[in-house]
């Protein structure tokens, strides 16, 4: 199915979606931060621009998420799902890949009910094509969304990748196939980032990166944990209980493998007891361990860790340095 939406059509589509879903749309917040926020029909949409600040997967796996309440008699109450499912609009190819990665992890048996309460029935709407900063090109999705809007000049090609998506698009006008072909052509030249990750991954798998490298990278880490918290494929959490008299609230909160206490044992011993080991783990997990487990990188190249790292040791920066030091042509 290929449809074409002008601005009025887009507004109509979003209004229709918002009837059935809790629709989140890209907006510019007070200081210009570009982030998903609740659709009101009034606030201006940000239809082109930088990668969304907060990772969209945070709607399904938020920083703090209530798991259950336990009362003094031992009765357990689990939060009810919201009346309407979520719809997230404005996801780029990496955002969608991140959600697909998390889906596979949290849906694997035993399925994670807290995640599914938010995720089940949710509608994902990709925004690709000429929708980057200054209308630059964003890679097309892998079809891992319900609807994909591909920005072309002053309109959007609309692809329905699921039956829900197709249903929502059915009444809109047919799209221009030649424009889609042009977009797919552009898409073929966007693999530079994954080439870099591929080379870095190979170095790790072949064990060609010495400990000294990790010590030098770790020396630059100021232990903010941001790289983990912004990562759309990071799924680690810890559990927090808060006792309010009659009720104990159990929640999970985002955790970070860059923290000493992440692996510290009760005795005080820590198998990942140095900054260097933890830094190595962060990169190795995404580029080597995940490849072995899932057959793909745990990095979707969204760029968020590089953006949020105060000292410039995000994934891409480290991969680049690794390849520069130990890549092809180096002894």
């Amino acid at each position: 199915m290929l449809k074409q939406l002008n601005r009025a059509d887009l507004d109509l589509l979003l209004t229709q979606i918002s009837d059935e879903y809790r629709l989140q749309v890209p907006q510019l917040l007070a200081d210009g931060t570009r982030q998903l926020a609740g659709y009101t029909g009034e606030a201006e949409l940000s239809l082109t621009g930088e990668v969304l600040q907060r990772k969209p997967s945070a709607f399904f796996f938020p920083q703090t998420q209530r798991l259950l309440d336990i009362d003094t008699a031992g009765a357990v109450a689990v939060p009810q799902p919201a009346e309407k499912p979520l719809a997230l609009f404005g996801l780029n190819q990496a955002d969608l890949a991140g959600i697909r990665f998390l889906d596979r992890f949290f849906r694997a048996a035993p399925a994670d009910d807290a995640y599914l309460r938010q995720r089940n029935g949710a509608l994902l709407i990709g925004l690709t094509g000429m929708a980057g900063p200054d209308n630059c090109f964003l890679s097309l999705s892998a079809g891992d969304c319900d609807i994909e809007l591909v920005a072309v000049k002053e309109s959007w090609l609309a692809l329905g990748h699921s039956s829900d998506g197709e249903k929502l698009l059915q009444n809109f006008p047919e799209g221009d196939k030649t424009q889609l072909v042009r977009m797919r052509h552009l898409n073929e030249g966007t693999a530079a980032e994954s080439d870099l990750l591929q080379q870095a991954s190979q170095l790790l798998i072949e064990d060609r990166v010495p400990d000294q490298f990790w010590m030098e990278i770790a020396d630059r880490c100021i232990l903010c944990s941001g790289c983990n918290l912004v990562c759309p494929t990071c799924s680690c959490f810890c559990v927090q209980d808060r006792n309010r008299g009659e009720i104990t609230e159990r929640s999970r909160v985002w955790d970070s493998c860059q923290l000493d206490a992440f692996m510290r044992e009760a005795s005080g011993h820590n198998p990942l007891g140095t900054d260097a080991l933890r830094t190595r783990r962060r990169i190795h997990h995404k580029l080597a361990a995940d490849v072995e487990r899932w057959g793909e990188f745990g990095c979707v190249a969204c760029g968020r860790c590089d953006r949020t790292c105060p000292t410039g040791i995000g994934m891409m920066a480290v991969a680049e340095e690794m390849v520069k030091c130990f890549g092809p042509g180096k002894p």
């Binding site: 931060t33 600040q53 938020p62 998420q65 903010c224 941001g226 949020t308 105060p310």
Partner: peptide, 21 residues
Amino acid sequence: SGVEPAAKHPVSRGQLCIKGW
């Protein structure tokens, strides 16, 4: 439910420390 650094603020520039997060 959480914290997100302000991306365009001249001091934080999309970044925070562990206490901020």
